[in-house]
Computed example of a mutant assay.
Amino acid sequence: MLLKNIWRRLPQCFKKPAYWIKGWREQGRIVYKKESSYSYIQVIDKKGYRYLVFKDPSCPLHLQRPEDIYQSRMSLDDTLDTGVPYADYFHLAWIFNPQIKDIIMIGLGGAAVPKVFLKDYPEIFFRTVEIDPEVVNIAYKYFFLSQDDRHKIIIGDGREYIKNTVDPADLVLLDAFYSRTIPHHLFTVEFFQEIKNKLNEEGLLAINFNGSLAGTNSFLFSSVLKSLRTIFQQIYVFASRKNSPNSMQNIIIFACKNLQNLGRPEIIDLARGLAEEKVTVSGFIFKARQLYEGPVELEEAELIRDALSPPGGMINLYNSRIGKLIPETGEG
């Protein structure tokens, strides 16, 4: 207690070196690093896990804990144990379409999602679109993604692929993030319409989003949700920390092409049946219970449009208002 009191009273100039030393000691072992055309990438081993990290160049690298900012994670003891809770929420898609066969994923990361889907569901075919070829190389070499005839990787922009492909999908997974930003052109009303056009009749879009459901950091989530609602018939929101709506957290959004009209009891019952017969991810029924039915402020939210692109084409996850990033002329 005495040491804690002394630490609290120390001037900040004395604390800063201690934080730097602590950050350096806790950064883990850097297995690989490279600055690609899109991001500064590190592969880090720490406490039994391997992390894929896109570092934020505006912050000292050793102060960015891999367990706080990772793009993907994998157990070093079991390469199919991703240890990525949000990735398991994508399996809730079977509740809304039990006949999924063709899947398109935008954003590969460390391949946490396709590795498990391909293992658990032998009937599916998976197409992953990744803009950074270095990320693809890392997924194969450091995260042990296997070559599989049911998995095709396309190096390119996800939106361009959706626009040009002639092969429809039952499920589109959108998981495209950098350290603190999302690509604007992948979250616009126009792109959501393009996705809907490529979905089969019972198809759906699933989005992994990092944000808050309410409070000062919720405006971007509200804008994404409002933009989705202009295109899709029905939307379901699942939040990893739904009882703390003001907290930044993983939010998984399912947008269904056709009306589902499933309530909480039906969703949980369907999850129980899937857990018994099909889905093996841990805590699947708990994740179904994370359906968020609380209020979301949409009245002040702005639609995300192609015509209003922020400088650099990226939206900061921590900006409270889209409009702060948009030039007054409306030009990108």
Rank of each mutant, 00 (worst) to 15 (best):
I182H: 10
V129Y: 04
P295E: 09
Y51D: 13
E26W: 03
F143Y: 02
I304E: 01
H184S: 05
N243C: 00
R305N: 02
I153F: 05
T329L: 09
E190G: 03
L303R: 03
I162M: 07
D269N: 14
D88Y: 15
Y19G: 01
Q234G: 05
Y142Q: 07
F90V: 14
I124Q: 04
E134K: 06
L228R: 05
N250E: 06
K22R: 06
Q71P: 12
H62L: 15
P168H: 06
A239L: 08
F219Q: 15
S218T: 09
L186T: 10
G330Y: 04
G156Q: 11
V116H: 05
Q147R: 13
P310F: 01
H151V: 15
E67D: 13
Q234S: 12
P295T: 00
I21H: 07
F144T: 09
Q64E: 07
Q233I: 08
N164D: 15
G23D: 03
A288S: 12
N210D: 10
Q71A: 08
R289E: 15
Y51H: 11
Y236W: 10
N5P: 01
E293W: 00
G48H: 04
P11W: 04
K46H: 10
V237S: 00
E194M: 15
L220H: 11
K287D: 03
I41L: 13
Y86V: 13
H184K: 03
S36M: 07
D148P: 00
W24H: 08
L308A: 02
F192P: 12
K119Y: 13
L3E: 15
S37T: 12
P66W: 02
T280P: 02
D269F: 02
E299V: 10
I21W: 10
R180S: 15
R305M: 08
I155L: 09
L171A: 02
P295S: 04
S240I: 00
I21F: 11
F221M: 08
R50F: 08
Q290E: 12
C13S: 15
G330R: 04
A112F: 02
S72D: 07
P183H: 00
Q193H: 09
K16P: 00
C256D: 04
P311E: 05
P114W: 06
R180M: 12
K152Y: 05
R9T: 06
P265W: 01
K115L: 03
E201L: 14
Y89R: 05
I207G: 03
T82F: 00
N5V: 11
I326M: 06
D157I: 01
L308W: 04
G313E: 04
D170A: 12
S223M: 14
P133E: 13
K22Q: 04
V31P: 06
A111P: 13
G211L: 14
I315C: 01
D81M: 12
A93I: 08
L270I: 11
G109L: 10
T216N: 14
S320Y: 01
V296T: 09
Y121G: 03
M314K: 14
I195G: 14
G110N: 06
I103E: 04
L325K: 07
P295Q: 03
M248K: 07
L220K: 11
I30S: 13
G203F: 01
G312L: 05
M248T: 03
D269K: 11
L80F: 15
Y89F: 14
K324E: 13
I251T: 01
W7S: 10
C59Q: 13
